[in-house]
Amino acid sequence: MEVRTIKVFTTVDNINLHTQVVDMSMTYGQQFGPTYLDGADVTKIKPHNSHEGKTFYVLPNDDTLRVEAFEYYHTTDPSFLGRYMSALNHTKKWKYPQVNGLTSIKWADNNCYLATALLTLQQIELKFNPPALQDAYYRARAGEAANFCALILAYCNKTVGELGDVRETMSYLFQHANLDSCKRVLNVVCKTCGQQQTTLKGVEAVMYMGTLSYEQFKKGVQIPCTCGKQATKYLVQQESPFVMMSAPPAQYELKHGTFTCASEYTGNYQCGHYKHITSKETLYCIDGALLTKSSEYKGPITDVFYKENSYTTTIK
């Protein structure tokens, strides 16, 4: 009895394709271990004539594949690729409408935090270190965002349907971005203890939790000093293409032309909904596939993004 075979390709990165001759009487799992086709788990399936010449994702289970996976995804987590594939199996079914010149995501599976993050990423200057993220990001900007969303979920250790947080998501993504040249110098002034300067680099240099107003941050924000008295913390120097200011959701007025974009969060910790506000020729609110415009805006804002380049204080 002759062994019926077909020729397929296996890959971990969709760049390096490895030619395989597979036995049609055995499952993919018996031949390769966990195997995925377009995100779908085909591990328990036997090869079919229609699979001839198709590319299958496999887990990096030998040295060659491990090197290829690390170079593309910059992670050695053995569960990463499987999590990416199972997320992709959902995100490829989502709709990605162009809204006001940006790629958004039609609401499904509690994905409003991903839509808000995706919209924000198209408006701030950011370059990702893992080629996987950078490639998928370019495709997302062009309207094909399924891979990018699935990668975000995998890097953030999230599953489809789980509630997510924009600030946490951005923080994970910033860790995989090139923020080497970003720098922030802060000064804390206390009447009792004097003053202390701190220099922050990388992710810490672009994120701040405690106030939404970048102007206020430049002037000074009140913080408790270690001595128990009130101290003032203010920005001395900022070198970065953008800054992200966050605070627990509270009524906040966004003035046209003073910011790049913002995240609105309605609801409580267990259950809520994100919308995205962007400042173009007027203010726009993007909620999944829905767009509304207004000249002014007041609502429960939790993150505001500002364009920056270089700032030095005039406070002496």
Rank of each mutant, 00 (worst) to 15 (best):
Q123M: 03
L290H: 14
Q230S: 12
G161M: 05
S104V: 04
L118M: 14
P248Y: 10
E308Y: 04
N100C: 10
V8L: 10
A40N: 15
A108V: 09
Y113D: 02
A142Y: 12
K275L: 04
Q251C: 09
F128S: 03
N178M: 10
K233S: 10
Q30D: 11
D62W: 08
T116C: 13
H273W: 01
R139Y: 11
Q216W: 05
Y297L: 02
Y73D: 05
Q196G: 07
Y73V: 02
K316I: 11
R141L: 13
V22G: 10
D303Q: 00
V99P: 04
A154R: 02
A136D: 03
T282G: 08
N49Y: 11
T266S: 11
Y269W: 15
D77C: 13
L186W: 11
V166I: 05
T27E: 15
A154E: 03
H256I: 13
T314H: 09
E253R: 12
L173M: 15
V236K: 07
Q20L: 09
R4D: 08
L81P: 13
V203M: 10
L65P: 06
A289T: 08
Y297M: 04
T120Y: 01
P130S: 08
L179A: 04
E68N: 14
L283S: 00
C156L: 07
N147M: 14
L283E: 02
M207K: 06
Q123P: 03
F9L: 13
K229C: 15
E2R: 12
T5E: 10
A150Q: 02
P249H: 02
T258K: 09
A117V: 11
C156S: 13
I152S: 05
T10L: 11
Q30V: 12
I6W: 08
I105A: 05
Y36E: 03
G257Y: 00
V8T: 08
L126E: 01
H48M: 14
F217L: 12
E144N: 13
F128P: 03
V12M: 15
P130W: 02
K54V: 13
V160C: 12
Q222Y: 09
K219V: 12
M209Q: 13
M170I: 07
H273Q: 02
T312P: 09
M245Y: 03
L81E: 06
G143A: 05
G228A: 02
C190G: 00
I315N: 15
R66K: 15
Y265C: 03
I301Y: 01
S50V: 12
Y155E: 02
V58F: 07
T199Y: 08
L200W: 06
A140N: 04
S86K: 12
C271Y: 09
M85T: 05
K127T: 14
I15A: 09
T226M: 13
C225P: 01
G82E: 12
K106I: 08
K255G: 05
K275T: 09
P131Y: 01
L81W: 07
T91D: 03
P300L: 08
N309G: 12
T199A: 08
L88N: 03
S279Y: 03
R167Y: 03
C227Q: 01
P300T: 08
K54H: 15
F32D: 04
E264Q: 05
T258N: 11
S79A: 15
E204H: 14
Q195W: 08
Y297F: 09
P249V: 06
M24K: 09
S240T: 04
D62Q: 10
V185H: 04
G194T: 05
P60D: 10
A132C: 09
Y84D: 04
E281T: 05
K201R: 13
I301A: 02
A231D: 01
H51C: 08
E125P: 13
I124D: 04
V203N: 07
V3D: 15
T260C: 15
T258A: 10
N178Y: 07
D109A: 08
A247L: 03
Y28E: 01
P34E: 11
K293C: 10
K280R: 15
G29P: 05
Y284G: 05
T116V: 13
Q134Y: 07
Y306T: 00
G82H: 15
T292E: 09
T27Q: 15
A132V: 05
L179T: 05
R83W: 05
M209G: 07
A87W: 04
D77V: 05
G257W: 02
V236P: 00
V3F: 12
L173H: 00
Q251K: 11
E2M: 12
E2N: 15
K219L: 12
K233G: 15
F217Q: 03
F242S: 01
G143F: 01
L88P: 04
Q20W: 09
E264Y: 04
Y137D: 04
V206N: 00
A145N: 04
C261G: 00
T258D: 12
K307N: 08
Y138Q: 10
D303W: 01
N100Q: 10
Y113I: 04
Y96T: 04
V12I: 10
C227I: 00
L114G: 02
L290P: 00
T116H: 05
A150N: 00
Q251F: 14
K106P: 02
Q30H: 15
M245R: 02
P60H: 08
A177K: 03
G194C: 03
S279H: 04
I124Q: 03
K218D: 01
V42Q: 12
T169G: 00
K46L: 12
A40H: 13
R184Y: 01
V3K: 14
N14Y: 12
V185A: 03
E296I: 12
T282M: 15
H256A: 14
T199M: 10
K158C: 01
Q222K: 15
N129K: 08
A231S: 07
E296N: 09
K191I: 09
M209D: 07
S310R: 13
P300H: 10
V185Q: 07
A108G: 06
G29I: 05
I15H: 09
Y297A: 03
T302R: 00
T64M: 13
T116W: 02
T258W: 05
S213A: 05
K127P: 09
A40G: 14
L119M: 06
A262H: 00
I124V: 07
Y28N: 04
K298A: 11
K127C: 13
L59C: 15
D109Y: 04
V42P: 04
R141W: 07
V188N: 07
I152D: 03
Q238K: 01
E162V: 04
D38W: 11
T64G: 14
R184T: 02
D109I: 01
K298W: 13
S79H: 12
C112L: 03
H18V: 10
G39T: 12
K183S: 13
I223Q: 12
A205D: 03
Q196S: 13
L88E: 03
G101R: 06
L186G: 02
F259I: 01
T116Q: 04
Y311M: 09
H276M: 07
F80M: 05
A154D: 01
K229T: 10
G220E: 05
I15D: 06
D63H: 13
L151V: 04
C190F: 01
N187Y: 08
C227K: 00
G257A: 08
F70W: 12
A136M: 08
H176G: 02
R141A: 11
P130D: 03
A145S: 05
E168V: 11
Y274T: 00
M207Y: 06
E2A: 12
N16T: 09
H51Q: 10
P34S: 12
V42E: 08
A145V: 05
D287K: 00
Y297H: 06
M245S: 01
G272T: 01
N309R: 13
V203W: 15
K183F: 11
G33F: 04
A142T: 10
R139W: 12
Q30W: 11
V304Q: 00
C190K: 02
G101Q: 09
G194M: 04
K293E: 11
E125I: 05
Y172F: 10
T5V: 12
N129V: 08
Y57D: 06
L126M: 08
Y113K: 03
A231P: 00
M24I: 12
T232L: 12
V22R: 04
Y84T: 04
A154G: 06
G53V: 07
T211S: 13
F242G: 00
K158Y: 04
N16E: 08
Y155K: 03
N49R: 12
A231I: 03
T10I: 14
Q270T: 09
F70E: 09
R4Q: 15
T314R: 09
A142L: 11
A132M: 05
F174C: 05
V243F: 03
F305S: 00
R66W: 10
T103F: 08
F56Y: 09
S50G: 13
D62V: 08
R184D: 02
G53M: 15
T211L: 11
F80H: 05
K298I: 15
A150C: 01
K92N: 12
S181W: 15
Q30N: 06
V304G: 00
Q237V: 13
T292N: 06
Y297I: 05
F217S: 04
T120S: 13
Q251T: 08
H48L: 14
D63K: 09
I105V: 06
Q122E: 04
M24T: 14
R66G: 09
T27H: 12
A250S: 08
